[in-house]
């Protein structure tokens, strides 16, 4: 464990909690892409099946359970409890355009053609594009609630911190995982446009609105 991975995990946890609290407190999931949340639930489910097969540490186990629990709770709040506030018309990204190619790539490019490894690879590739429906929805509505931008900031920051974690681990431990690194770079690049808007607008107290 190193400072970049720890702050990365805490940033990820903060994002997940911010989103859950936003929906729960405002009793509304307006502006939130339910499809991205479905993808995140799928990412955690396929990545953390090793909870059933191996124990790494209490931290590892507890964080995985929190991530999975919050992901499904968020999907439940969006599609069941606060379904009336779900903006389905603007959440129109076709999930099959992401899941099918990612599934195919996971079968072609992986470290080991075993069940858990293929699922882990699938979850790594899927996570790198899972935010696309959310970013697509914001581009369609042309704006985002400020709390939603904070959620996206911490979510994008977490994988950027993981990139530094991988530099650290390569230098000090000789560890590197090319699949996770390439996917992590792609994932972080997808946030660059948002990061620019977040820093130039939201941090200056303005509302995040895309050029009409």
């Amino acid at each position: 464990m190193n400072i970049f991975r720890l702050t990365g995990d805490l940033s990820h946890l903060a994002a997940i909690i911010i989103l859950l609290l936003k929906i729960w407190k405002t009793r509304s999931c307006a502006g939130i892409s339910g499809k991205s949340q479905i993808l995140f639930a799928l990412v955690f489910t396929t990545r953390y099946l090793d909870l059933l097969t191996s124990f790494i540490s209490f931290y590892n186990t507890i964080m995985k359970l929190i991530y999975i629990g919050c992901a499904y709770a968020t999907v439940y709040l969006i599609y069941m409890k606060f379904k009336a506030t779900y903006d389905g018309n603007h959440d129109s990204f076709r999930l099959e355009f992401l899941v099918v190619p990612v599934g195919g790539l996971a079968c072609l490019v992986n470290h080991d053609f075993s069940f858990l490894e293929i699922l882990w690879t699938f979850s790594i590739y899927l996570e790198s594009v899972a935010i696309l429906p959310q970013l697509f929805m914001i581009s369609k509505t042309g704006e985002a609630e400020t709390i939603t931008t904070h959620y996206l900031f911490f979510l994008g920051l977490y994988r950027a911190l993981y990139l530094f974690n991988w530099i650290w681990r390569f230098y000090f431990e000789g560890f590197f995982d090319m699949i996770a690194i390439v996917a992590g770079v792609v994932q972080t690049i997808l946030y660059c446009d948002f990061f620019y808007l977040y820093v130039t607008k939201v941090l200056k107290g303005k509302k995040l609105s895309l050029p009409a």
């Binding site: 991975r5 995990d9 990820h12 990545r47 090793d50 191996s54 790494i56 540490s57 590892n60 964080m63 995985k64 991530y67 470290h111 882990w120 993981y162 974690n165 431990e173 000789g174 560890f175 590197f176 995982d177 090319m178 996770a180």
Partner: peptide, 10 residues
């Protein structure tokens, strides 16, 4: 090469 020993990262 990739260090084996499971996925210790979240």
């Amino acid at each position: 090469g990739q260090v084996t020993g499971g996925k210790d990262e979240l």
